[in-house]
Design a binder for these strands. Structure first.
Lengths: 275, 275
DNA sequence: TGAATAGTGTCTATTAGACACTATACG
DNA sequence: CGTATAGTGTCTAATAGACACTATTCA
């Protein structure tokens, strides 16, 4: 563990003599898969790269971790705020979790850059503004097993109508989408895509869009209500019924559970790839 | 993303002029939670630190990622081989997966060191030899909700009879243990703790030790056999029966499933902390 | 008025767990 | 021979999903 085989008696003296420059440099970035629903469709936040490498290509938002100044979660939250232009208050409604780290030496042609990827679930957000190092930033529809239920499980997953993402961001996005699908099964995080008060049919629409398949309305309703702490009733009723008719649904807000029991398993998840 | 706001026309020229030293340094390490069963008890591999900081304290094995030369998975595999002294062949029987990254600026007093933690499941291995930067290395019993079923879910988790680990390795170990418990539920990785051929009661002992609770022998047996691809029969029978009597059990080897359907849920996992 | 939807009731096939039983092996 | 265990059978409570039905709202 100790990079220099020093055996000083005094730790303070050791630290004073310690020069970080003695070690070969690896750069560290955070990149974020920010997912949201816009008009019912799953979107991911992408930025167009202003500089080299991959100039002009789309990439996940992210940036370098400020050495010695911030932890990984802080860096991700900072980048998220910068790229979406959201206030600290609005950010509290966003779920942010670590997705994984990606460190192939050749993933960035400049040097060895390790990226710690994060995954965020956000309610419908305003259009992003391009940050300093991004030419543009845009919510981009995610295709794949979404958007019609026709796409199979094995179809290549990428954002935005076949755009190829820079670096290995296509892979990171695919990992983030799979994580998101899994998270809906055993956490109440689907509510993070909605306003603070929402109806069960709205919640069901989140599941249907992210899982890419229709769910049974009656059974879904019952399962949500039977999972303790998933939702809690407000006593209120939605202003209007469904756009195509039907009674007004009751309003709920997110409960205090962090894990769902029982879980809402994907109907098809019996054989994911059961080989 | 681009650290210097360069707008060169030619990517090659850009790369030639690129100096990695322009950026503040963050060091990158991999640390590994290596779990194994020794005489039926869960053990973790720990090393005693030879140098500062935390000299003389126990820590997870790990080391610096070789910048530009290896990816994260490679670095973890290399460290694992170095610390356990295992051959490449023996390492193929070890399961290794990324656990998460830890990057608080103050987690290492020398400088900002980000650690990518890995989790490994290994069959019973020989005693480790101390590496270059470790005074000693030893398999260390894990206490916690293990070892007798008396420990509650909330008991502080640490290795080796109340040893305090260096850095934030206590936290990493706790995260690794929780991941291990969860992994047994929906993957067939319990077999990674056993020899290539094993009996169902041996497999059950893995679950009982890691989950810290007794399981119903009959129902466990049936659930394992009903999960497609979990185990496949060898047609053979164990040489001897149970040490305290009983018929000889049949031998199985790991099947080709990577996910269990249906999953083997922890009996208690109904309310993990359902708040 | 017709069509679509919210929410609830109910039936059934499946499953998890408890219990029981036998056959086998150790000491 | 006594005891413990492997493996299987069976019963029951809980669950998932299918189907049905009413009331409510939009167009």
């Amino acid at each position: 563990m100790s990079p220099a085989p020093a055996h000083r008696d005094d730790e303070a003296a050791f630290l004073a003599a310690y020069d970080p420059r003695d070690f070969p440099a690896i750069a560290l970035t955070v990149d974020i898969v920010v997912l949201t629903l816009r008009e019912g469709r799953l979107n991911v936040l992408l930025v167009e790269r202003a500089g080299q490498p991959f100039q002009g290509q789309w990439a996940l938002p992210g940036g370098f971790v400020k050495a010695g100044q911030e932890g990984l979660d802080e860096a991700a939250a900072r980048e998220l705020a910068e790229e979406t232009g959201l206030s600290a208050g609005a950010l509290r409604r966003v779920h942010l979790e670590q997705l994984g780290s990606y460190g192939e030496p050749a993933r960035d042609p400049r040097m060895h850059v390790v990226s710690v990827a994060y995954l965020a679930f956000a309610p419908d957000l305003p259009d992003p503004r391009a940050g300093g190092d991004a030419a543009r930033a845009a919510w981009t529809p995610v295709v794949g097993p979404h958007g019609g239920g026709t796409g199979g499980r094995n179809s290549t997953e990428r954002g935005s109508a076949d755009r190829e993402l820079a670096f290995d961001h296509g892979r990171i996005l695919a990992d983030g989408l799979e994580r998101a699908r899994a998270k809906l099964e055993y956490t109440p995080l689907a509510a993070a895509f909605l306003e603070p008060e929402f109806t069960i049919p709205e919640l069901r629409a989140v599941y249907e869009e992210i899982w890419g398949q229709k769910l049974h309305p009656g059974n879904f309703h019952r399962k949500v209500l039977s999972a303790p702490g998933f939702v809690e009733s407000t006593g209120e009723t939605a202003e209007r019924g469904g756009s195509r008719g039907g009674p007004r649904a009751r309003l709920y807000r997110a409960g205090d559970a962090r894990l769902l029991h029982p879980a809402l398993l994907r109907p098809d998840a019996e054989e994911p790839d059961a080989r």
